[in-house]
């Protein structure tokens, strides 16, 4: 068991290393000089030279990489080209809002998709399965931001049940914070639900073919009991992995949902960073999104190994 966990953790190391190389290389392949990007084209040559020296741009690339990596590991992502503030300070302000939205969206997604996926999987081929699968197909084709716009128009503007957009920190006004969270979280949750429902259904259907399930049926157990005690229990490890896989999609979705609802999270920095060519910012965001995804998936694989001994052997 310990060996399995250690191996999973070790496998993540080259991935994190590769991610850091990619993020580092990203800023180096930008057409043009980073110093010019920072200071503008018509800047004082002496100032340019000093900044180049200060940023270590005249050193060989591997030395630049190592000192950059050292900085990143201590939480120093450099200065934002745009605001001249440390990128890490900006990110720290934004992360809570993104986490709140992601958790809210995940909760909504799970509440819709897991029951739907389980039900469809248990009653494969039934009318309910057809309806759920059909809804999944339509859900997969629906652009998330368009769905969000429709929800905003309906629930906020037509019916007036909810505020249409904005953000208040939880510690300032918890009730208003949650009211403002409903629409974005609903949008994000509905956007990931089709994927989760599909993965859930597949997990259940695959488990249904296992010998232990056939054995439980052969014992004469009612179908309900088979579903609840055997199929569901065996499916849980693969469900955990399925949820972890959707996290990448959840993060991508949050970029768009934050933009739509003026939710001040990390996602809004992505679009702004690209339009303003704020490369240290984009670099830091790539790293953070990548690390979140890798960590979540390592945790999921470890959990899967804890619950399903067969996984540990592979």
């Amino acid at each position: 068991m310990v060996q399995y966990i250690a191996r999973r953790l070790l496998l993540a190391v080259p991935l994190l290393f590769g991610l850091s190389i990619l993020a580092f290389a990203y800023v180096r392949v930008i057409p043009g000089d980073p110093v010019t990007a920072m200071l503008g084209v018509n800047s004082d040559p002496e100032l340019v030279a000093r900044l180049r020296d200060q940023l270590g741009l005249d050193e060989p690339w591997y030395q630049q990489y190592l000192s950059w990596l050292g900085n990143v590991l201590t939480g120093d992502f450099g200065l934002s080209y745009r605001s001249r503030m440390p990128v890490s300070d900006i990110l720290v302000d934004r992360i809570p809002a993104t986490l709140e939205l992601a958790l809210g969206g995940l909760l909504v997604g799970l509440l819709i998709a897991i029951p739907a996926g389980l039900y469809a999987g248990f009653r494969r081929g039934s009318r309910a399965d057809n309806v759920i699968t059909g809804a999944t197909l339509v859900g997969l084709a629906t652009p998330g931001f368009w769905l969000g716009t429709l929800l905003m128009l309906l629930l906020a503007l037509q019916l007036g049940w909810l505020p249409s957009q904005g953000y208040v920190p939880f510690d300032v006004d918890p009730a208003q914070n949650l009211r403002l969270l409903v629409l974005p979280a609903l949008t994000l949750g509905l956007a990931i639900a089709p994927y989760l429902a599909r993965l859930t259904r597949t997990a259940v259907v695959e488990t249904g073919g296992e010998p232990s399930v056939a054995y439980a049926r052969a014992q004469g157990l009612p179908e309900r009991t088979v579903a609840r005690t055997v199929v569901l229990r065996i499916s849980i490890p693969s469900l955990i992995v399925a949820v972890a896989l959707t996290v990448g999609f959840l993060l991508a979705g949050s970029i768009i949902v934050e933009e739509l609802f003026n939710w001040p999270g990390m996602g809004r920095l992505v679009a702004a960073g690209v339009s303003e060519r704020d490369y240290p910012m984009i670099q830091a965001l790539m790293l953070i999104y990548g690390v979140i995804f890798i960590v979540v998936n390592v945790i999921a694989e470890v959990l899967q190994g804890l619950m399903d001994p067969r996984v540990r052997l592979t």
């Binding site: 590769g18 991610l19 057409p31 993060l251 991508a252 970029i255 768009i256 690209v274």
Partner: peptide, 23 residues
């Protein structure tokens, strides 16, 4: 395949946004 793994870790939309940022 290790390069592929790496791409799996970053949301597709973010990869695309990063490339738009370059050009």
């Amino acid at each position: 395949m290790r390069v592929v793994d790496l791409f799996f870790a970053i949301p597709t939309l973010l990869v695309a946004i990063g490339i738009v940022g370059l050009f």
